[in-house]
Design a protein around this nucleic acid. Structure first.
Length: 856
RNA sequence: GCCGGGAUGGCGAAAUUGGCAGACGCAGCGGACUUAAAAUCCGCAGGUCCGAAAGGACUGUGGGGGUUCGAUUCCCCCUCCCGGCACCA
């Protein structure tokens, strides 16, 4: 009996023979729901002042590059499924979206296409937003954040002023990474293998510039320590952050310069993690760019030339990203330093493997106990002096001449004066204490993490709200004068420094202190500033007197689930953590960390390679929507692989998903009978076995899908489970045709089937929900609950092994005793044959799982 | 070099706590429906060997070893692939 075609909402088209067309046409159904959803802006709005439990699910906001790619679709399909699931479980869900819309590509477009960055960006946003809506993602668009709007970036400026007030933003002259293609500086984090993170073939140059820095290093220790709190982050990301912060405990030791070497009283400070080996130091090595080197080379042309050579070698190696493999070279300065522990004079060398930007740029060289120093000393025939010997459990066996270099900490000191005989770790403590007591050093901690340089010599970014007055120097723009608006109609080139510097109306300003003329800062902020706090803005996106309301933020934070690509494991996620800690110390928020759970989804690849235009293997979401529909594209991106693994896109795979959606649709079209008098009656408690099997499968499926949402998020297996359920339903079609399946059960199984699909394929779910006679959005319906008693199998099949080899299977009631199962197993014909004439050593029964009979 | 992750049919994958390896899907093959095709529905399907068939034997989760009644799963060694870090003193 076909459903009546009288509803004005659900339309089942009919074919030539006037039978209902049970073929699922996504191109008919999806636009219908799309239009309805468009008309209801409140559909996915998070509730203010809710008494419900909150859930904040967030996908990383995209850069509006022009069009969505499959990686976006996958990312958002995961988040959307979770958001819908949480809605159906009664949570007050915050699921927002926005645009990381400042950045260089807009300027490049301006240069190549002569389109103003703002226009280009807003056009892309409009396009991508339309794509997202067409894909059916359930975002609260009333909270949309667009970082290039003054309403947003004024708060970047406001935060900057706060950072400046607290000494966390400061200006200094320093060597910076310069990308010639971007025509701007890069933060350390943005340099990949010596190249620009955006231009992987472009070597980064070193330039000397005045720059604004944020003092992220103030939080280095806390950022490291709190990684422990991120228990629901992928271990991989936690390790990467730990390495990036690079905490290292050691000792600073000052070596005095000998006699006439350098200015009187001058010292070379070295950093070492192995001060216990210092009696084995046979030279001091300086980085080629160490300030003292300049002093040594001033009146020594040949030495200067040699040092210049070392600088060049080091720079080349760094740029090529293989500083680790640099061939060690060095040159003797001819001067000496004095080891404060034993008064010994050691030569000062300059070496190309010493880095100026780590530690103090100077080391003590201990060839006997360091691989690198050993190699260097061998090459230049420097003295190698053993000061640590291994300690064996049996003192008789203690080796006195270990193979060199001997670098472990499991040893004791020799030839080390009053420290001889101490164990290494104890010696490190005592020697550091002595240095401190005598004023020639101290225990210290060094980080690899550097302060965050945020100045960019580009146009399309947040203007840094600072002024330079001839009289008053650096003066912050007063808070009341924010925002400093980014001017329009600026001619953009990649040459000649900051484009804003060429706009007199922008540059020329008045000093708020003295009223005299002042020059405006013309650099803009790194766009990672924008994304460091945007998720707080979502909680209160239209606030125009503060970045957000602290109370509201406190309700929503921390983010319950953050989802994005692993490529942001360091940059974005470390800056965000820093920003949160800074805001906490300002009293704006109470949470120490922004993100409770982080999920990093795998890449979408095709034919074994990352999708790229040059490989010609790009799959376009628009094309997938046009061919298969949004639901199919989304469902396939969840089905083809577990979400944390890379996904190999196969066009034939999505066809299978399209078939599956058609199968579901067809089943419901044929079996929805909401007008039937029994349709809403409760399912009878006693069902005959073949029908009971349907009910059992239903409850098993609900359990599997629910468990996965709570646990490991393997949506691919969730969808498989629903497919199995559908296969069972098709197997029952004959029974249904003969009215052997009670209508209440038929209704129940269809309702639940559609509910189970609601997080994954919203268009189809909404269509079928309506077809089943249900009113209102399926999002407002409750997630199905399974009944363990109904999910339970009454009879189970148990494999029987003999000596671990499968020999037979028996079917027994699920509550059988061990004795009963074993009896039945031994009675099995094939099992009996396999054990005939042998002696049974042991019977193993794993309840409900397996029997193994051990014979000999 | 160090730290992660991975390797399972022709392909994407599954096996959640040590217990039937290959669920589910794709591609393939066979059948039904059709004048025919598409669509749809049903069935078969790791490999090798024996058998006309029913069925049976052996073998099989990158390679080698171990623990166990039993290992894709735990332990040791090795190979390859992907990602990250790397003279960080």
């Amino acid at each position: 009996m076909p459903p009546q075609d009288k509803s004005d909402t659900t339309t089942v088209t009919r074919n030539a023979e006037n039978r209902p067309d049970d073929r699922y046409d996504a191109q008919r159904v999806e636009p219908k729901w799309f239009d309805r959803w468009q008309q209801d802006a409140s559909l996915y709005a998070a509730e203010r002042d809710s008494t419900k439990k909150k859930y904040y699910v967030l996908e990383m906001l995209p850069y509006p590059s022009g069009v969505l790619h499959m990686g976006h679709v996958r990312n958002y399909a995961i988040g959307d499924a979770l958001a819908r699931y949480m809605w159906m479980n009664g949570y007050n869900v915050l699921h927002p979206m926005g645009w990381d819309s400042f950045g260089l590509p807009a300027e490049n477009a301006a240069i190549s296409a002569n389109t103003p960055p703002r226009e280009w960006t807003l056009g892309n946003i409009a396009n991508m937003k339309a794509q997202m809506k067409r894909l059916g993602f359930a975002y609260d668009w009333s909270r949309e954040v667009t970082t290039c709007f003054p309403e947003y970036y004024r708060w970047n400026q406001w935060f900057f002023l706060k950072l400046y007030e607290q000494g966390l933003a400061y200006r200094k002259n320093s060597k910076v990474n310069w990308c010639p293609k971007c025509a701007t500086v890069l933060a350390n984090e943005q340099v990949v293998n010596g190249c620009c993170w955006r231009h992987e073939d472009t070597l980064v140059e070193q330039r000397e510039l005045e720059q604004w820095f944020l003092r992220i290093t103030k939080y280095a220790d806390e950022l490291l320590r709190d990684i422990e709190k991120l228990g629901h982050w992928p271990e991989k990301v936690r390790v990467m952050q730990r390495n990036w912060i690079g905490r290292s405990e050691g000792t600073l030791v000052d070596f005095k310069l000998d006699g006439n070497a350098g200015p009187a009283g001058a010292t070379i400070s070295v950093f070492t993690t192995r001060v216990d080996t210092i009696f084995g130091a046979t030279s001091v090595l300086l980085a080629p760019e160490h300030p003292l080197v300049a002093d040594c080379t001033r009146y020594n042309q040949p030495l200067g030339a040699a040092v210049q050579q070392l600088i060049t070698e080091q720079r080349k190696a760094r740029e090529a990203g293989d500083i680790g493999e640099i061939e060690k070279h060095g040159v003797n300065t001819g001067r000496y330093a004095i080891n404060p522990y034993n008064g010994e004079k050691v030569p000062i060398w300059v070496a190309n493997y010493i880095l100026m930007d780590y530690g103090t740029g100077a080391i003590m060289s201990v060839p006997a106990h360091d691989d690198r120093d050993y190699e260097f000393a061998k090459k230049y025939k420097l003295e190698i002096r053993l000061v640590i010997v291994p300690v064996a459990d049996d003192p008789e066996e203690t080796v006195t001449e270990p193979p060199l270099p001997f670098t472990t900490l499991k040893g004791s000191l020799i030839n080390s004066g009053r420290f001889s005989g101490l164990m290494c770790e104890e010696a490190i403590q005592k020697m550091a204490a002595e240095a401190e007591k005598n004023g020639f050093g101290k225990a210290t901690v060094t980080y690899r993490l550097k302060d965050w340089g945020i100045s960019r010599q580009r146009y399309w970014g947040t203007p840094i709200p600072m002024l330079y007055c001839e009289k008053d120097g650096i003066v912050p723009v007063p808070e009341k004068d924010l925002p400093v608006i980014l001017p329009e109609n600026v001619s953009i080139t990649l040459a000649g420094g900051s484009p804003l510097g060429k706009v007199p109306e922008f540059v020329n300003a008045t000093c708020p202190k003295c009223g005299g003329p002042a020059r405006r800062e013309t650099d803009t902020m790194d766009t990672f500033v924008d994304s460091s706090w945007y998720f707080y803005r979502y909680t209160d996106a239209r606030n125009d007197h503060a970045p957000f309301d602290p109370k509201t933020a406190q309700y929503w934070f921390p983010i319950d689930q953050y989802i994005g690509g692993v490529e942001h494991a360091i940059l974005h996620l470390i800056y965000s953590r820093f920003w949160t800690k800074f805001m906490r110390d300002m009293g704006m928020i109470k949470n120490d960390e922004p993100v409770e759970r982080l999920f990093t989804q795998g890449m979408v690849i095709k034919d074994g390679a990352k999708m790229s235009k040059s490989l010609g293997n790009v799959v376009s979401p628009d094309e997938m929507i046009a061919r298969y529909g949004a639901d199919a594209a989304r469902l396939y991106s969840l089905f083809a692989a577990p979400p944390d693994r890379d996904l190999d896109w196969q066009d034939s795979g999505i066809e299978g998903i399209q078939r599956f959606l058609g199968r579901v649709y067809r089943f419901v079209v044929r079996n929805a009978k909401p007008e039937h008098p029994d349709w809403r009656k409760p399912v009878p408690p006693q069902l005959p076995p073949p029908v009971r099997a349907i009910q059992r499968k239903l409850h098993q499926t609900i359990k599997r899908v629910s468990d996965d949402f709570q646990g490991r998020w393997h949506f691919n297996t969730c969808i498989s489970a629903v497919m199995e359920l559908v296969n069972v339903l098709y197997g029952a079609e004959e029974a249904i045709a003969q009215s052997a399946v009670p209508v209440p059960l038929l209704a129940d199984v269809q309702r639940n089937l559609v509910l189970l699909l609601a997080p994954f394929s919203p268009y189809l779910a909404h269509e079928l929900w309506e077809m089943l006679g249900e009113k209102g959005s399926i999002l407002k319906a409750s997630w199905p609950k399974y009944d363990p008693a109904l999910a339970k199998e009454e009879e189970i099949e148990i494999p029987v092994q003999v000596n671990g080899k499968l020999r037979g299977r028996i079917v027994v009631p699920a509550d059988s005793t061990e004795d009963f199962v074993l009896d039945r197993a031994l009675a099995d014909e094939k099992v009996a044959a396999a054990i005939a004439g042998k002696q049974i050593v042991k019977n193993i029964y794993v309840a409900g799982k397996l029997v193994n009979i051990v014979v000999k």
